[in-house]
Amino acid sequence: EYSEEELKTHISKGTLGKFTVPMLKEACRAYGLKSGLKKQELLEALTKHFQD
């Protein structure tokens, strides 16, 4: 599980793409985000969540 700060850091540095799909799905579930099946959809959901 990833902390909010850790995820925000990866988003701001542009390194969230280094996460694997299972890692991204886990992060989306942890924050109650609707997650797609594609890596890009997962990245967009997390990025949008933490930028709002």
Rank of each mutant, 00 (worst) to 15 (best):
E1H: 07
E1W: 07
E1L: 15
E1R: 05
E1D: 15
E1V: 09
E1C: 03
E1S: 05
Y2I: 15
Y2G: 04
Y2F: 14
S3P: 07
E4W: 05
E4Y: 09
E4C: 10
E5A: 12
E5Q: 09
E5N: 08
E5M: 09
E5R: 09
E6C: 10
E6F: 13
E6R: 14
K8L: 14
K8I: 12
K8Y: 09
K8E: 09
T9V: 12
T9H: 11
T9I: 13
T9S: 13
T9E: 13
T9C: 11
T9D: 13
H10M: 12
H10K: 02
H10G: 04
H10Y: 10
H10Q: 09
H10L: 03
H10E: 05
I11S: 02
I11M: 07
I11A: 07
I11H: 02
I11W: 09
I11N: 06
I11E: 00
I11R: 01
I11T: 04
S12L: 12
S12E: 15
S12F: 12
K13Q: 14
K13D: 06
K13V: 07
K13C: 13
K13W: 00
K13T: 08
G14P: 03
G14D: 07
G14N: 10
G14F: 00
T15F: 00
T15I: 04
L16C: 00
L16W: 01
L16R: 01
L16H: 03
G17W: 14
G17S: 14
G17I: 08
G17Y: 11
K18W: 08
K18C: 13
K18M: 14
K18F: 14
K18R: 12
K18V: 07
F19Q: 02
F19R: 01
F19G: 03
F19V: 07
F19W: 13
T20S: 11
T20N: 08
T20P: 11
T20R: 04
T20V: 00
T20F: 00
V21W: 06
V21S: 03
V21P: 02
V21N: 03
V21R: 08
V21H: 01
V21E: 11
V21I: 09
P22T: 11
P22M: 06
P22G: 10
P22E: 15
P22H: 14
P22N: 14
P22S: 10
P22I: 10
M23L: 06
M23I: 04
M23Y: 09
L24Y: 04
L24R: 01
L24I: 01
K25F: 08
K25Y: 03
K25N: 15
K25H: 08
K25W: 08
K25A: 11
K25S: 10
K25T: 13
E26C: 08
E26N: 04
E26D: 06
A27L: 14
A27R: 01
A27D: 00
C28R: 01
C28N: 02
R29C: 08
R29V: 08
R29N: 15
R29W: 07
R29Q: 15
R29I: 11
A30W: 07
A30V: 14
A30C: 15
A30H: 03
A30G: 07
A30F: 07
Y31S: 03
Y31E: 04
Y31R: 09
Y31V: 10
G32N: 13
G32H: 13
G32S: 07
G32T: 05
L33C: 05
L33A: 01
L33T: 00
L33V: 13
L33S: 00
L33D: 03
K34S: 11
K34G: 08
K34V: 10
K34A: 11
K34E: 13
K34P: 14
S35L: 10
S35E: 06
S35V: 14
S35P: 13
S35G: 14
S35A: 15
G36R: 03
L37P: 12
L37I: 15
L37Y: 11
L37V: 15
L37H: 15
L37G: 15
K38Y: 06
K38N: 09
K38M: 08
K38W: 01
K38C: 12
K38I: 07
K39S: 02
K39W: 01
Q40T: 13
Q40L: 06
Q40Y: 08
Q40R: 11
Q40S: 15
Q40E: 15
E41T: 03
E41L: 06
E41N: 08
E41A: 07
L43W: 05
L43R: 05
L43H: 04
L43F: 03
L43Q: 15
L43T: 08
L43V: 15
E44L: 09
E44H: 09
E44V: 06
E44P: 02
E44I: 06
A45E: 11
A45T: 14
A45V: 11
A45W: 02
A45N: 10
L46Y: 02
L46I: 02
L46Q: 01
T47Q: 03
T47G: 07
T47D: 10
K48P: 01
K48R: 12
K48F: 06
K48C: 11
K48L: 13
H49S: 04
H49R: 08
H49K: 05
H49M: 06
F50P: 02
F50R: 00
F50E: 03
F50I: 05
F50A: 04
F50S: 04
Q51R: 09
D52C: 05
D52F: 02
D52T: 09
